[in-house]
């Protein structure tokens, strides 16, 4: 039995594949996208989120560890090892542990609660993150359980993993959601922290064996200029492919604050810019939605 570190399971998810779905969020990601709205997904290790607005200063967490010696509302993050004891004690939920180690079977048990809704809506379960393929063993086991139960499966990936990771889950994955953020390698490194070579190598190979929904997050001043190049690239590929354009939003701001991290807000593209971007794909015969 394999265990995965996950940070959320979201039911009635409507934007992570066909139908009504349950999305399992794996913790840990190789990319550091500037616009990431799930900052708690990035590190593989559990982390403490601290919401000062919920803290009532009851002191239940004080003295449990070195990070909590200064006083009830004080939190020295540099000394926190995310053991989770404080979150367990916190009565208000001001302290929360992002990252739970669960066996694949336990995750499946929760994810399968809505199996009839999947059946009704043509939905299923999506493994997202973070990067689910960084925990490929548990991901593969989870997908296998789900497929054995007759549930449609999808994997939402950034693609920056060895091909072997895809190989390990291919058999039990019906659909891949695959992010392309930029074609320009330097730009890609600047806005995601990694090179895009492996991502661009894996995608054509994946398309040969599975349908893929390519998701392109668009941030006005970061990668909007990449749309044409992405559309050209995707139109050159063969396989069952369609594109979803994801408009940037700042809904993750609160989580950055709770993680004690700096939040940088970007401007979302306008509706007109989204339409222009979509037209780039349409004119090249690539199915696109936004």
């Amino acid at each position: 039995m394999s265990k995965a570190t996950i940070f959320d399971i979201q039911r009635l998810s409507l934007h992570d594949g066909p139908g009504a779905r349950t999305t399992v969020f794996f913790k840990g990601c190789g990319l550091r996208c500037a616009w990431c709205h799930n900052p708690e997904s990035q590190h593989m290790e559990p982390e403490i989120l601290f919401d000062a607005t919920k803290c009532i200063g009851c002191g239940a967490c004080v003295g449990l560890c070195a990070a909590r010696t200064a006083g009830p509302t004080q939190f020295d993050r540099t000394k926190c090892f995310a053991c989770g004891k404080c979150a367990q004690r916190c009565p208000t939920g001001a302290l929360q542990l992002a990252g739970q180690r669960l066996e694949a079977a336990e995750i499946a048990h929760i994810a399968l609660r809505d199996r009839q809704l999947f059946h009704i809506s043509g939905g299923g379960v999506t493994l997202s993150g973070g990067e689910p393929l960084l925990q490929v063993e548990a991901a593969a086991e989870l997908l296998h359980i789900l497929r054995a139960e007759g549930v449609h499966t999808a994997v939402d990936t950034a693609g920056d993993v060895p091909w072997e990771c895809f190989d390990a889950v291919l058999e039990d994955t019906d659909l891949f959601l695959y992010d392309i953020k930029a074609m320009d390698a330097a730009l890609h490194r600047r806005v995601t922290g990694v090179d895009n070579a492996r991502i661009l190598q894996n995608l054509p190979r994946l398309l040969r064996v599975r349908p893929v929904v390519v998701r392109v997050p668009l941030v006005a001043k970061l990668n909007l200029g990449q749309v044409k190049a992405i559309a050209q690239y995707l139109s050159s590929l063969t396989g069952e492919l369609r594109v979803e354009l994801l408009k940037y939003h700042a809904l993750g701001k609160g989580k950055y604050v709770r993680l004690g991290r700096q939040f940088v807000e970007y401007a979302p593209p306008t509706d007109a810019q989204m339409r222009v971007a979509a037209a780039e794909f349409e004119r090249r015969g690539v199915e696109v939605a936004f």
Partner: peptide
């Protein structure tokens, strides 16, 4: 409409 239909069907089945 599809979402509402799915929720209605799910509600009835449950």
């Amino acid at each position: 409409d599809a979402l509402c239909e799915h929720l209605i069907r799910y509600f009835l089945e449950m």
